[in-house]
Design a protein around this nucleic acid. Structure first.
Lengths: 190, 190
DNA sequence: ATTAATACTTACCATAGGTTAAGTTAATTT
DNA sequence: AAATTAACTTAACCTATGGTAAGTATTAAT
């Protein structure tokens, strides 16, 4: 269970056995059933979740009641409402399991302690956030420069796993279009 | 000239005089005239630029030759093509001064050295990238959930400085619409 | 197995924003 | 200060995507 986390950390930093024990002692395993919530908007996002197995989405709900998917996280991804997590203010975001999922939860206070005891964790998350930022800016740019059809075909090519495992209505929302539009786009692509 | 940078670092970490001297020795001042390029696509993004004074934009150009503004940076902001900077691969992005600007440039190799000599810089950039990520995800979400008019009025309210100092055509592009559309929106708002 | 809920599709009409084109205003350069 | 270039506006028309509604298919619950 902790091995996946260790492997993930070791993609960016090196970790000693002692350090890993310390990290493991701060992390809480959590199983969550499909369609159950890890976070509901209004609550404070207590934990940064590392996905050992499964699939989750974070999303907001606008005034009209429409959902907007912010992030889709599968194995070896991290998911949270970072704004709420960092500030410990109420979340605007919901996080829900798309499949039965195994998570490792790291609370904000635990992470603060770990930053002080294992300085390379600053480096790990510096790299993690920098990567995520590059991806987010690229996604924003695509949203401003490409049609929904191109965004879909690009996602299909680069993340076929998402297309396979995530319901179309959530993919549509992630792409910023309605399920009806994505259905039409798919049809045009035969 | 280095004081602005020190102040910026000290919003997130504390810095000793010795550390600041070391940082200063790795940083290159650069003056850039309005409408001149700091980075052209195809080149490798050598430097992370801290804006002491002035205003710049990063943007991509699509197949049709249309520009898409990715980032607008004014005083105390950092700007670069992060993907190119981290990987030292050719950039897809251009960076251009919107006003005559004073910058402090930090090369990728200098930054690597500094990370090893001043561990708290990992923490500084961890926080910087985390903040930027939160903002980028929020911007993406707005793009998926709000009309161009709402996005404009929100920008007007939260960043009146941008509206004042940046030409409308670049603001339009940043918002993901054409200058004609933004002009129409402005008219409707009287 | 049946029922109920969730996911997906289709079609028709509506609209925000894009495209084109022409003009005006403002900022630079000579 | 004239000339040039960049920035902004307006209007008529067009298109990608949204909204609504009704139906089918799939998955989950009883």
């Amino acid at each position: 269970m902790h091995q996946e986390l260790r492997d993930n950390l070791e993609t960016k930093i090196s970790i000693t056995d002692r350090e890993m024990e310390l990290i493991a002692s701060h992390v809480t395993p959590r199983f969550i059933k499909k369609r159950k919530d890890l976070l509901v908007s209004g609550a404070i996002c207590k934990d940064f979740a590392f996905v050992v197995k499964g699939c989750l989405r974070s999303y907001t709900i606008d005034e009209k009641g429409t959902e907007h998917v912010v992030q889709i996280a599968m194995e070896n991804y991290w998911i949270a409402d970072l704004h709420s997590y960092f500030t410990q203010q109420p979340s605007q975001t919901n996080i829900e399991a798309i499949e039965d999922s195994h998570l490792l939860l790291l609370s904000a206070s635990s992470l603060e302690e770990l930053y002080d005891q294992i300085p390379s964790l600053d480096r790990f998350f510096r790299k993690l956030f920098a990567n995520a930022l590059v991806i987010s800016l690229e996604r924003m740019n695509q949203s401003n420069s490409e049609t929904a059809e191109k965004r879909y075909t690009k996602l299909l090519k680069e993340h076929p796993d998402i297309i396979r495992r995530v319901p179309l209505l959530h993919i549509a929302s992630f792409l910023g279009i309605t399920p009806e539009s994505l259905s039409r786009i798919r049809k045009q692509l035969h």
